[in-house]
Design a protein around this nucleic acid. Structure first.
Length: 550
RNA sequence: GCCGCUAUCGUCUAACGGUUAGGACACAUGAUUCUCAAUCAUGUAACCAGGGUUCGAUUCCCUGUAGCGGUACCA
């Protein structure tokens, strides 16, 4: 055991350049003037790669909770691992989240409690590290990687817990002279927590999502400051969240096991503890096993995948909301016209286990969402998407705005809303029947019907077709053609005696559909033809007739 | 290995000791003055296993099993 004097001496030896005190720092970060009910939360990603969908998920929780309580949502960049950092990583995160409609009240660009990038807060952590050493709550450790490895080896051989703790912690109670000598030899050091926890002591802890949990006290002398002078997550977290006035930490589940450690650091720092909520991560089914959505294996782990595909941002957020609080779906059914921001998200309703990320369900939520939009809104969203990801579509839309809106308007009104679009890129397929240069006429024999008969039907249709007809007039004419050619008008009658007829009205409409759209399936044929216009319809039918004759 | 969390239809979940175990997605079938989509109706489908506690357990407790997470000078 060292004396108080000795600890102060070591602190001064290690950080002679640090003149500021803990009090000085706190003066720069005054307490926020907010009510307790107003949540100050933060999303704190590392710029180590592309924006993960899980990040969108977690930041949405933060954003919602802040909004609901008239609180503040902060973005903080945790870039203390310089080895894993990638260039442009910060912009990737900020721009990406913004594209999903998630903005921050304080972040890299604005805010009074910055810097919001941890590497720029290096000096702050040092002040606290020096203070902890001086008070005997932390100490320098000069152990080499090799030595640490040896310790670990010995520990696993004798079957005890691995780690730097208790009697295994070489430098825990080192003499001042030893510290001086190591320093003089130019050895690099880390600052470790001087843990006073007892692993055999259990305590309960209340997590806002998990509820009451039991933990063992931490006894690991974990690294606080790395040898490059930057803090580990464990050290930066209590300091930043305290200085920034965070009153609820929402972070993914992988942090859950380090709660005892963090509580000890809070205590040793002399800080008030902060409430935690640990939501479970998004999972993926892989060969019968659930696993975390992986950056390397799963394209859909990259949030930009959804941007490319053109999944509507609100659809994405609503899908996430339905995973977070399953009552969101019921709420949505009861309040079809309210914005998702009106839904009240509750931490206690979160599921404790990880949910599978379900693309099918996502598509369904997006279909619902898009079906609630007007044709103009769809046009604008698709245009925005196409501008970035599909110039061909973009140009078509710019040059044919009215035409495109009327395409999007097909079966968009009334009760029978069309729900076949889950993402903006789906328009490419839709456009194929409406633009002549994207249109592929079908081969002659797609229909199992005599060619002469098909030609007859189409010629008769052309003879009576009038663009100004209402849909009933239009269909009456088709029925007439059907009748004249020996088709049943009534489906049930046809079912009774199929041999009496050549087919049913649907088959006649089918011939026209194939001629006009090039497909056996299409949206409401009458509406399609109205949108296409008289001459395009006639052209296509004539071309198809020629094709059959050729 | 050790520590912790979790466990209901294929998926997301509801239930907070007594229910024909509910809903949504998916799937299947049927309806529908044209196909697809939509809509409507119907249907298939679940309490991880074994012990307790209790008049009664999906629900509470224990054990096992499985999944997930942690066990770094990564976050």
């Amino acid at each position: 055991m060292r004396t108080e004097e000795e600890n102060r001496e070591i602190a001064q030896l290690l950080f002679p350049e640090v003149g500021e005190s803990v009090e000085d720092i706190f003066k720069r970060y005054p307490k926020r003037k907010l009510k307790d009910s107003q949540l100050v939360v933060r999303f704190a990603p590392s710029p180590t790669g592309f924006l993960h969908v899980g990040s969108v998920y977690t930041s949405l929780i933060n954003r919602k909770l802040a909004d609901q309580t008239d609180g503040i949502c902060i973005l903080r960049i945790e870039d203390t691992d310089k080895k894993r950092e990638i260039e442009g990583g910060i912009d990737l995160i900020i721009n990406g989240l913004e594209r999903f409609g998630i903005k921050f009240d304080e972040s890299v660009k604005k805010g009074e409690y910055g810097p919001y990038i941890q590497s720029e807060r290096k000096e702050i952590y040092k002040v606290f590290a020096k203070d902890m050493i001086a008070r005997g709550c932390a100490y320098p450790c000069f152990a080499s990687e090799k030595e640490l490895e040896e310790i670990r080896k010995k520990q696993s051989e004798s079957g005890v817990r691995t780690g730097y703790y208790g009697k295994w912690a070489l430098w825990r109670d080192a003499k001042v002279e030893d510290v001086k000598r190591a320093l003089n030899e130019g050895k690099r050091f880390v600052v470790r927590l001087y843990s006073t926890g007892n692993f055999n002591n259990k305590f309960t802890f209340n997590d806002l999502i998990k509820g009451n949990c039991t933990f063992s006290e931490n006894d690991m002398d974990i690294v606080l400051l790395k040898s490059d002078g930057l803090p580990t997550y464990h050290f930066a977290h209590p300091i930043d969240d305290t200085l920034m006035g965070i009153n609820l930490v929402i972070r993914t589940y992988e942090w859950f096991p380090s709660v005892p450690l963090h509580l000890e650091i809070f205590d040793k720092l002399g800080f008030k503890r902060i409430n935690y909520a640990h939501p479970a991560p998004l999972m993926k089914m892989d060969k019968g096993n659930k696993r975390k959505l992986s950056k390397r294996k799963d394209p859909e782990a990259d949030a930009s995948f959804f941007l490319h595909q053109g999944y509507p941002q609100v659809g994405m957020l609503e899908y996430f909301l339905s995973i977070m609080n399953s009552n969101f779906e019921d709420w949505r059914i009861q309040n079809p016209s309210l914005p998702y921001t009106d839904f009240e998200l509750k931490l206690e309703k979160f599921n404790k286990a990880g949910a599978l990320f379900d693309m099918v369900k996502l598509s369904d939520v997006c279909k619902e969402y898009i079906s609630r939009l007007s044709a103009e809104q769809v046009y604008n969203f698709v245009l925005e998407w196409a501008k970035e990801f599909d110039m061909d579509i973009y140009n078509r839309m710019i040059n044919n705005k009215g035409y495109c809106i009327s395409i999007f308007n097909i079966e968009r009104e009334g009760d029978k809303k069309r729900k076949d679009m889950s993402k903006w890129s789906d328009v490419k397929e839709q456009f194929k029947i409406f633009f002549d240069d994207m249109f592929n006429d079908m081969k002659k024999d797609v229909l199992d019907m005599d060619r002469g008969l098909q030609i007859n039907i189409l010629k008769e249709f052309l003879a009576t077709y009038y663009y100004g007809d209402s849909s009933t007039e239009w269909f009456d004419k088709i029925k007439r053609i059907a009748q004249d050619n020996g088709f049943a008008i009534d489906y049930k009658e046809y079912e009774k005696e199929p041999s009496k007829y050549k087919g049913k009205v649907g088959d006649v409409a089918g011939v026209i559909r194939v001629a006009v759209t090039g497909r056996k399936q299409s949206p409401d044929l009458y509406q399609v033809m109205q949108v296409m216009g008289d001459s395009r319809v006639r052209d296509r039918i004539e071309k198809y007739i020629n094709n059959l004759q050729g």
